[in-house]
């Protein structure tokens, strides 16, 4: 089974908007799925610079789904949805 990849943007805007705190908490919360997901930092997903997504940092990418104004709850829900579909 392929792992679900979660990319957390740690570009400047996302980092100051709270992206910097997502990874450690999310990693701790998803311990039981550790074998099925991969959580990585991304330098910059570039999402904050698009006019339609401006002002919605931080961004997290769960596979091909971009989550704006991301927080633990939203990202966790997106991961669970993916895992159920697998």
């Amino acid at each position: 089974m392929e792992k679900v990849t979660v990319k957390i943007c740690e570009g400047t805007t996302c980092f100051v908007m709270g992206g910097g705190t997502i990874k450690p908490v999310l990693t701790a919360l998803t311990q039981r799925y550790a074998a099925r997901i991969e959580i990585v930092s991304a330098r910059c997903l570039g999402a904050c610079n698009h006019a339609d997504s401006f002002s919605k940092a931080p961004y997290v990418l769960v596979e091909d789904e971009i989550i704006s104004a991301a927080d633990i709850e939203k990202v966790y829900a997106a991961i669970e949805k993916r895992l159920k579909n697998d």
Binding site: T12, T13, V16, M17, C48, N49, F54, S55, A57
Partner: peptide, 14 residues
């Protein structure tokens, strides 16, 4: 320039 850096909603001054 990265427009997003000048968003007044940012909690710190960049």
């Amino acid at each position: 320039l990265n427009q997003a850096h000048y968003d007044p909603a940012l909690p710190v001054e960049i």
